[in-house]
Structure formats: C-alpha cells, structure tokens
Design a protein around this nucleic acid. Structure first.
Lengths: 268, 268
DNA sequence: CGCCTTATTGACGGACCTCAAGCTAAGTGG
DNA sequence: CCACTTAGCTTGAGGTCCGTCAATAAGGCG
C-alpha cells in the first residue's frame, strides 16, 4: 500500500492524506470472486497486488469480460459514485485489495481536488481501452482479435514497469481469453494453434510466450495510441526501482502531468 | 448553451463560471464529420443540439461505433486530458457543438472541483454503457443485440427528458445500427424484418417505431441498471420544462447528488 | 493412482457475411 | 410532368467463420 501510494502522480499532501486514510486489506485466492454486482458495496476497492478481470454475465450464463485490472488501479468507480457495481470481478492470481469506505473517499475528493482529476484520467483511458476491445470483438476476425489482445497485454505490462522479457509471457486461461474476445474456448484453442504455426507465439505449460512481438502487432494492425501511454507510466521521472520488478512493484496511478514515452508497436 | 448550463447538477457559482467562460459555437450538418482522431485538438467539445456517433475504423475501412452522444454531454474527454481524440465523431442530425479551450477547461477544473467530479460520474456511466455494448456484440445473437440497442436508445431518450411517445420512434440509418452492433447492413435489414414479423416494431419511412417496448425489452433480456438512471436525470427536482420537449431541450449533465427515479424495463 | 480442471481435436451445423440485383423514396434538371 | 439519379433499404444464393457437441488428452493435486 505504501509502495503503491508513493508512486502516484500526486503532490506530497495528497499522498500523505491517502496514507492517513483508514483502510482495510482483503486477500483473495486465484479463482475467487472478489465482488458481484448484486452485493451492497460501500467502499472503494483498489487492487494493490495481483491481477483481476471484470466481466458481466448473460441469463444463460455466457460471460463477457471487459478488461483486466492491474495493480494500483481502482477496480470499480461505479461502486463509489453510484453505490453499485456493474460487473463481477474475478481474481486471476492471488490478489490483494485495499478497501476505503465511500464516505472517506468522498471526503478525500472534497479536500484534495487533484484526486478526482486523476481518476478522471484513469477512467477516460479505461473507456478508450474498452472501445478498442469493442472494435476487436465487433469487426476483427478471431486471429487478429487474439493477436491484438496479446499485444495489448504485453504493452500494458511493460508500461506498468514489467521487464519486456517477462511481459512477453502471458498467463491467462483460454476460458478467459475467450471471454475477452467473445469466442468459445474451442475456437481460442484453434486460433492459438494457428499463431503457433505462424511462428508468432509459443506455448509452455499454460503460458503463451510471444516469440515475435512485432509480427504479432503487425498481424493485429496494432496502433498503441489508445493506451495513452503517458497515463500509465509514473509521472515525471519514475522513482528509482527496487530489485524485483514483478507485476506490482511499480505501476503508478496514471494521470495528468505525465509526459510518458512514445510507444511503438514495432520495437524488437 | 444557457439552457444547457442551467440544468446542470451544479451550484450557482459553478454554473455562472461556465457561463462566463469564453466559448465558440460550431454547427454541422447531418453526415458531417465533427472531428477525427488525427486532427490536433485543443478544445473541449460539448454537444448542445442534435445527435452524434463516436466510431473507430479499421485499416480496411470497417467501422465500429461505441456510443451516441446526446445533448449536454462532452464528446471527448480524451481531447482535454490527453490532447488527442481516440475516435471519429459523426453528426447523425444537424448539430451544434460548443468548444471551450483546454486551458480554460483546466482552469475551471482547478477553481471548481465539483466539475471534474461531475465529469467523473459521466465517464463512469459512459464506460458502463460501453461495457454493455461489448456484452451485446460479444455474446448476444443479432436479434437480441438489435432489441437491446433499440430499448437502450428509447430509455436513454426518456431519461434525457424526451416524451415516451416520441422516444419510441428511432431514426437511425441501418448502416449505423450495423456499426453499433458489429453487423452488416444486410443482416440488420433481415433482423429488423424479423422483429417486425414478431410484432415488436414497425417501420415508417426511415424510422423504426417500437410497438411493444416491454416485449422488446424482454427479448433483449434488458436490465436497465447499467444506465445508472440517477445520473442522467436532472438532480433533485427537475426544473419546469418549456413547451416543446424535442430532443435537446432538457438533458442535464448527470452527476452526483441525483437520486433519480427507478427505471423499469416493463413499463407500458 | 484417480479425479478434476484445462486444453486439444474432429465432425457437423448454423449464424452471419459476401456478392449481386432490384426496389423505393426523394430529389434534380429538362 | 417526367426521365434520371442517388441514397438507403430489401431480397436471394452461396460461402465461411465460428459455435456446438463429443471424445480424447494432459497436467495438477490430493
């Protein structure tokens, strides 16, 4: 939590105010449902460790997933602003979530106006990412959808501070890949096989490893603009980083004032 | 513009500040492209009259539309926050757009912290609507997709203050319906024919008229929760309304503090 | 080892796309 | 007033991408 706050693109008083706010840490295991839309919710939830997926379900049980939640991100602003969540959140890994009561969050908003502005940045970027997913599901064939998803996750992990070599390794059950892309697991499996045959990816156990990032991005017709790279990177100069660079040591809240480096889909 | 500001769920000082802000009105005709993502953009754009559609395109020219923009809504927050737009905006009717320079908007943010909070509400709701569209495109068959879209537009127009009888009349070219739903115009045409055969809708000239709103909502498995109805309705008590209640007289910025009435998909 | 979850592979069917005409309504100009 | 055009919609035939159903692996874990 402290690590998480320190990297926010906020001034010291804001950071200190967040650190001074009473909060609760909850832990979940891989596969757990972190929350459901039919539960009462009186707290903001911020993911601090691990990876989670937002999804909705249809009456017949079919699922559609909108996005991953990476560390240092609010899981669900609707919960604070409207008092209800509009989706399920599932833990894809073991997960740590910080809860801050809605009343305290609104109090923070009132006392530190930079905080809602920061969240406005995050949410605008979130919508942009969701728009791109809709474009994939609505108009791209399965193989491009998959190539696009893999490229997007690789880039977002890099932007969050994961080393490029690690970011090429994607651990996501095919059931979830299908739920992101609007495909069945069977078709995901077949499509992965095609990418493998094209030499763009490899599979090791349950992980997909990107072998040719540039080729994959080209197949996906990937244009990274929608990620608004400046908004995920830490603000100005990123703070010095501790030894291990696993998923959640860094991130940054994203936000205003961050120039961010240009991202190209053609590197490597 | 004045009409528009008066209905915002903001206190008087905020409203006055917005009214005092220098701005420019631009008019477009049906079919015009209001802006494109590759243009420089240094101003916030607020739709005050008419109807517009946000969309992205693929290299092969296929289009995917995310959402309609109704009057009294920001067209594109990315433009202010990131300096670039991430989509095209097309005028579906003749349209009036107010432009306020980014610098002045950011100044308003700084002086009146309620304004970014209001936009945060809007954007959270926008994302929720987009999520539901993704669910449609990813997992619902064409006939439900269409039923859902028609129901959503009807309800949103009602929430924006359009009389229920008028809200049942939907004027949207089939090309655009297809772009919202990820379908070809041919298939949209065939699907409309099915709904007509089921007695749920009628067609008059270019308009679709909903004949059985409840039946359509049932077919769509429509759950209105994602619209966060409280956020579109004017705050507390809605101000008295002038004579004509066409598309754009009312609306309201949506936002905090608005309880809003419960919406049911089963009325009428 | 036996069980359970996850992934693979195949045969088949169907929802939706493609391509191609033809239709209607609303202009436009003579 | 009547060709002629144009934009939007409709209709049909045929094909394909992806879903469904079902059987078979292949790990993980007690």
């Amino acid at each position: 939590m402290i690590r998480f706050v320190r990297h926010l693109p906020l001034a010291e008083p804001e950071k200190q105010a967040i650190l001074d706010t009473p909060r609760e840490i909850r832990r979940f295991q891989r596969g757990d449902t972190i929350y459901r839309p039919d539960e009462p919710c009186g707290a903001a939830r911020i993911l601090v460790e691990g990876l989670a997926a937002q999804y909705r379900i249809l009456p017949n049980g079919e699922r559609q997933s909108a996005d991953l939640v990476f560390p240092a991100r609010f899981c669900d602003l609707g919960c604070i602003l409207f008092g209800v969540s509009d989706h399920f959140l599932a833990a894809l890994t073991d997960v740590e979530v910080v809860e801050i009561s809605t009343a305290r969050i609104l109090d923070l908003f009132a006392r530190y106006p930079q905080i809602p502005v920061l969240l406005l940045h995050q949410e605008t970027r979130n919508r942009s990412i969701l728009f791109e997913r809709l474009l994939s599901v609505g108009r791209r064939p399965a193989i491009r959808r998959l190539a696009h998803l893999l490229t997007e996750f690789r880039l977002r992990r890099e932007l969050a501070g994961v080393a490029p070599s690690r970011a090429k390794r994607i651990l996501l059950p095919q059931r979830w890949i299908g739920d992101f892309l609007g495909l069945t697991t069977e078709h995901v499996s077949r499509t992965i096989a095609k990418l493998k045959a094209m030499g763009l990816i490899e599979q090791h156990r349950n992980a997909i490893v990107i072998r040719d990032p540039a080729g994959l991005a080209r197949l996906a017709e990937f244009d990274p603009g929608y990620l608004h790279p400046g908004a995920e990177a830490p603000p100005r100069a990123p703070p010095a980083r501790r030894g291990r660079e696993g998923g959640s040591t860094v991130a940054g809240f994203g936000g205003p004032g961050s120039e961010g480096s240009k991202v190209s889909a053609n590197e490597s």
